[in-house]
């Protein structure tokens, strides 16, 4: 197995495109090292992206935040301003593995590993995160919900690599939240995950919402029907009931070792209510500031 640590995005894409099909991107390594240990994969080339400075940055820009694909969970957690600005995204990031795992794991890896249960993904989707992808044919920007296509599968083409995420400056009076359900309090894989971002108008009416569900389908889902139950309401009990019903209705889960179909469907609704309540309170406190 070859190991390369290029210092530019171009060099990395060149290695991935020109290399053999068994080439893998090594970011935090917390998924692929496990897959290698379990003999699930046997890559011939590892392309370590941690020496690419563009991928190591967390940048506060005029129009939002951009963070690189090699930024670890702990680096985001230690970035006080980012955490303040994107509490919903951080709800998800803080649930990836353990503290030890987050010391290495990256959000980009969480997205590209394409587990339907990845905790940061619904949070990013709800926040409207855009990923910048580089490849042999240059760069393109796509919303995070368009990356995962199924368990372990992404829409990235051969030679393409995720470079960074962009989170546009949050609207005033908006708030986001993510919660998952797991039997253990930590160190577990979501049976259901829900990310919600919502924005309130001056009258307290929800003007904009995004609802994303994890672990209830082959990939994380952006559920517009669920968002629609909130928009135009004050996120009252009736709206939350409708949200729960819409969230449950959007689920198309499987039975597996981690949870049953019916359980996932029911809990998706329960969690959606709870997450909307947190997002609402965060939006309200944003409005007060």
């Amino acid at each position: 197995m070859r190991y390369e640590a290029p210092t530019s995005v171009e060099a990395a894409t060149e290695l991935l495109a020109g290399g053999k099909p068994e080439a893998r991107v090594l970011a935090g390594g917390t998924d692929i090292l496990v897959q290698m240990h379990m003999d699930a994969i046997a890559p011939e080339l590892l392309v370590d992206i941690k020496n690419i400075s563009e991928m190591r940055q967390i940048e506060s820009l005029d129009d939002g935040y951009r963070f690189g694909a090699a930024v670890t969970g702990v680096e985001l957690m230690d970035h006080a301003n980012f955490c303040r600005t994107w509490p919903g995204v951080m709800d998800g990031v803080k649930l990836i593995g353990s503290l030890q795992v987050r010391g290495r794991a990256t959000v980009a890896g969480n997205v590209c590993n394409a587990s339907p249960a990845a905790d940061s993904v619904p949070a990013l989707i709800a926040a409207g995160a855009i990923a910048t992808i580089a490849g042999p044919n240059g760069r393109r920007d796509i919303p995070v919900e368009d990356i995962g296509t199924g368990p372990g599968k992404t829409s990235l083409e051969n030679g393409e690599i995720l470079v960074s995420f962009f989170l546009a400056k949050a609207r005033p009076s908006s708030g986001g939240a993510y919660q998952r359900f797991t039997p253990r309090t930590e160190m577990d894989i979501a049976i259901v995950g829900v990310g919600i971002d919502l924005t309130l108008g001056d009258d307290g009416v929800c003007t904009h919402a995004r609802v994303a569900l994890g672990a209830v389908a082959e990939k994380a889902l952006l559920v517009e029907e669920a968002a629609a139950t909130l928009i135009g309401t004050k996120v009252d009990e009736q709206a939350l009931d409708n949200l729960a019903a819409a969230a449950s209705a959007a689920c198309r889960p499987i039975d597996d070792k981690r949870g049953t179909k019916e359980y996932r469907i029911e809990v998706a609704g329960v969690l959606a209510r709870r997450v909307a309540a947190i997002a609402l309170s965060r939006a309200k406190s944003a409005r007060e500031k």
């Binding site: 039997p183 253990r184 309090t185 930590e186 160190m187 577990d188 894989i189 070792k257 981690r258």
Partner: peptide, 16 residues
């Protein structure tokens, strides 16, 4: 066996 690892066997952690 579908859960031959600590992740899916789910022994209690300190916060449980």
């Amino acid at each position: 066996m579908e859960n031959p690892g600590f992740l899916d066997y789910r022994m209690p952690v300190a916060s449980d």
